[in-house]
């Protein structure tokens, strides 16, 4: 299949790109990595009148860790640039753990972090990771930039809150409140398949006490599952076997899995519980070894 007919522009600045979106009143789509958009256009699930290709806007191609630990990921940062990236691995272990599990190695050379968050696929690794990390998206429109907290950005399956004339130019992950640890586990039948269940966990430790805990799930509901409220029960406490077990049960309870060819709802809920326990126990063991 090939896409239906569309116009194409490749602006060199974000301002030009925004002007193009504005001029096409909701009928234009931004093309970054294209690893979701192009297949959707080929299958005619999407038929935009205008494609605004932002790949020529070199200013958007970066990822960096600032002095205070804040991480900024530009709209053209490809998945593979977050793999084997020592600065990112140190700043945000959850991203380093998830990066090699996104799609497959070839898709990772093109697909972008910010694009994946915007796509808001309930199976998406990065929307879940950003939700656990409590980050925000910087959107740029005709009137300038605004910050959108991730919980107000990803609002449903394939739904984000960008206006038609806005571009998500950057993802921002706040500085840690202490020492940041975390992990990402995903069960998939084969590389590149949709996840049976995925769990993103990030924890900021102050000494042996939890200062921030974020957990989000992918693949176990009709949208990205935000389990941060269940995770927040850990804040102010130590990571103990008992606390871990109770949070794992609480997180599994907020999953919304459905029975399908990848497994029964009960099975997927059990995977979520096991993954949360496995990740937190691993973090506990690592921190005990370090101490």
């Amino acid at each position: 299949m090939y896409p239906s007919r569309f116009g194409y522009e490749s602006p060199k600045t974000v301002e030009e790109a925004v002007a193009l979106l504005d001029a096409h009143g909701g009928e234009a789509k931004v093309l970054a990595g294209g690893q979701s958009l192009v297949p959707m256009m080929r299958l005619r699930f999407a038929a935009p009148e205008m494609i605004v290709d932002i790949n020529g806007i070199e200013d958007l191609h970066y990822n960096r860790v600032e002095a205070d630990g804040t991480v900024r990921i530009g709209a053209l940062c490809r998945h593979e640039e977050l793999e084997d990236n020592p600065a990112i691995a140190k700043a945000i272990p959850t991203i380093a753990a998830a990066a090699p599990l996104v799609a497959d190695p070839i898709v990772r050379t093109r697909g972008t972090f910010v694009g994946s968050v915007c796509h808001a696929d309930p199976q998406g690794d990065w929307a879940a990771t950003m939700t656990a990390l409590g980050g925000h998206i910087v959107a740029q429109g005709p009137k300038g930039k605004r910050d959108i907290p991730i919980a107000e950005f990803v609002i449903g399956p394939f739904q984000n809150t960008l206006a038609f004339n806005e571009i998500a130019v950057e993802a921002v992950i706040p500085a840690p409140k202490g020492v940041r640890v975390g992990n990402y586990l995903k069960l998939e039948r084969r590389v590149g398949d949709f996840a049976t269940a995925s769990v993103a966990v990030t924890i900021d430790m102050q000494g042996d006490t939890v200062a921030y805990a974020g957990i989000a799930l992918a693949g176990v509901g009709g949208r990205t599952i935000n389990a941060n409220e269940a995770a927040s029960a850990l804040v102010g406490k130590k990571l103990t076997a008992e606390n871990i077990a109770s949070v794992a049960a609480a997180v599994a309870a907020v999953a919304e899995p459905r029975t399908d060819h990848r497994g029964s709802a009960d099975y997927k809920r059990q995977i979520v519980k096991t993954f949360v326990e496995r990740i937190l126990t691993g973090l506990l063991n690592t921190s005990q070894k370090a101490a």
Partner: peptide
């Protein structure tokens, strides 16, 4: 120099 899936890129790109 990097591998891509050429069915998922527009020729104009």
């Amino acid at each position: 120099g990097r591998p891509i899936k050429s069915c998922t890129m527009l020729a104009v790109q």
